[in-house]
Amino acid sequence: MTLRVLVVEDEFLIATDLMDLIEEFGHIPVGPADTLESAVRFVGQSKPDICTMDLRLRGGQSGVAVAQEMLQQFGLHSIFVSGNLDANMRPRLVELDPIAFVGKPIAPHLLHQALDLADRSLTEHRSKQKRTEQ
């Protein structure tokens, strides 16, 4: 399926790169959002399926907090895209049930894999939902 992907990233150039790549891989990029407030606004406007999430956002906002909000309020899972995904950081993100981690500089094929993964699990999840509804 075609995913609508909300890009949460405060660095404009990297956001542009991400949006281009998402489009190249056949999905629809939404955003970019660089704060919690703008992310919430984009969710309302564009109904994304998943997010890509930077860890350090504008004004020192934490991407972890935004990811948590996206998950709890809207049920949106995140692909974390960051240069700081070291061994200390990953365990802290596990409770947010992330789709995947992608380091910076962004390796296109790793982002592609992460999007495929999101696609598969979302498709599966929705068909399960349909079955329980019927």
């Binding site: 150039l13 790169d17 281009d20 500089p105």
Partner: peptide, 17 residues
């Protein structure tokens, strides 16, 4: 420095695409 270099590299990639 690292972040700036990454921006430079991203710029080149955007240009390339």
């Amino acid at each position: 420095i690292k972040n700036s270099l990454q921006l430079v590299s991203t710029l080149l990639r955007l240009e390339g695409r």
